[in-house]
Structure formats: C-alpha cells, structure tokens
Computed example of a mutant assay.
Amino acid sequence: MGRGVYFDIGGGHQLAESDLTKGAENQRQADSSDNVGTKPLLQEISMSIKRVIDVTEKCFLVIIALFTVGAMAQEVMVLIEQRSVALKDLLLMFIYAEVLGMLGAFYSSHRIPITIPLFIAMTALSRLIILQGKDGDPSILLYESGAILLIALACWVISHLNDRD
C-alpha cells in the first residue's frame, strides 16, 4: 500500500493516516459549527445586557435632570417667598446649573469631562464655607479651603494635560 501508517480497526479494514486526518478535520469543522451557533448567541446576550445597561443609565440621567430642575424650581419658590437672595442661594443655583451642564455634556459627547464634577465640588465647598459663617472652627475653614485649592490645582493640571494632547 502507500506511505503512511495504517491501523487495523477490525473486520479486515485498513484505515490510512490521511483518512484519519480527514476525519479529524471533519470533527473540527463540526465543533466549530457548534461554536458558530454559540458565539452569535453569546454576542447577542452580551449586546442585550449592554442595551439594558445603556437604557438604565439614560433613565437615571433623565431622573437626575428632572430632580435637578425640580430642586431648582423649589429653591426659586423659596427665594420668591423670602424676597431675598444670598450668596449661598446663588452658589446652590450654580451647582444645579453645573449638574445640568454635566448631563448635557454627557448627552452630546457620551462622556463626562472630569473638570465638571471638580467645579461642582469646588462650588459645593465654597457654599459650605459660606454656610458655616464666622462662628465655625478656623481649622475646618483651612481644611475646606485647602481642599478647594487642591481641586483647583487638579483642574489646572488636567487642563494643561489636555492642551498638550
């Protein structure tokens, strides 16, 4: 017979190595056709999970926007009733506006620039300092103003890194 290794599989039949190779290739094709059915199913499940997460995220962002607008409206009503506006009220309104700006930035670019939450944090700390008034502990004032300084420094570094890119 020809070259190759032969195996006696019983019954007087002989099987060449090339026949074994063809059999192995057929098995691999059968296995891969099983995987082909599995891969699209896994991809479909993965895409479905991603869609659920995306829809949930967008729903929460809409809820945040609605709550922010509601809180702004409540604050405006309080200011109208009091017939007085203080710096702390303006800073609170600025925080609300920044939250809405952050949501707008997310919807336009599908990402949130890191500087927006940092600006919100600086404004919130400034408002906290104003709310504490003159009677507060001076060491706390130093810590809060130091935090504002660190956040401002972080914003400066980030903006310079972005300018370089």
Rank of each mutant, 00 (worst) to 15 (best):
I130S: 05
F60D: 14
A105I: 08
A86L: 09
L128Q: 05
Y107P: 01
A86T: 06
F94D: 10
M102K: 02
Y96N: 06
Q74D: 11
T115G: 02
L79C: 04
K58E: 15
S139I: 15
M122Q: 10
R164Y: 13
L149V: 06
C59E: 13
G146H: 04
C59V: 13
I95K: 09
A73G: 01
N162G: 01
I80L: 13
L92A: 10
I140L: 11
I130K: 11
M93W: 02
P138K: 08
I151H: 01
L141C: 01
Y107M: 09
S126Q: 02
D137T: 09
A97H: 13
A121V: 05
A121T: 07
F119S: 07
G146K: 00
M72G: 07
K58C: 05
I158N: 02
Y143W: 13
I140M: 11
V157K: 04
F94N: 11
D89H: 10
I129E: 03
L153D: 04
C155V: 15
L100I: 14
Q82T: 11
P117V: 04
S109C: 04
L131D: 15
C155L: 07
T115Q: 05
K58A: 15
A73K: 08
L128A: 03
G146T: 03
G133V: 09
L103F: 07
A105G: 14
A152T: 05
L125G: 00
D135I: 05
K88C: 08
H110R: 15
F119L: 06
G101Y: 01
A124L: 03
L100S: 03
L103V: 14
E81G: 07
I95E: 06
L142E: 15
C155I: 15
L90F: 00
S159Q: 14
V85W: 00
F67Y: 13
Y107C: 09
V99W: 00
Q132W: 08
E98K: 07
G133C: 02
I130P: 02
I95Q: 12
K88L: 06
L66H: 06
I120M: 06
C59K: 12
L161R: 10
S126N: 05
L79S: 08
G136H: 10
Y107V: 10
L142C: 07
R127D: 00
E81F: 03
A147W: 02
A154M: 08
T56V: 07
C59W: 12
K88W: 00
I64K: 11
W156H: 11
G146V: 03
K88V: 14
F67M: 13
C155E: 05
A86F: 05
S84N: 13
A124G: 03
E98S: 08
I116V: 09
I148V: 15
P138G: 01
Q132C: 02
E57P: 00
I151A: 00
I129G: 03
L61K: 14
L161Y: 10
W156M: 10
D163H: 12
A86I: 01
I130F: 15
D89G: 03
F67L: 15
V85T: 10
L87T: 06
L150P: 05
E144V: 12
I140A: 08
Q74S: 07
F119E: 08
Y96S: 00
I148M: 07
P117K: 04
V157Y: 07
L150S: 10
N162W: 10
I130R: 11
G133E: 01
A97L: 11
V99D: 00
H160S: 08
M102W: 06
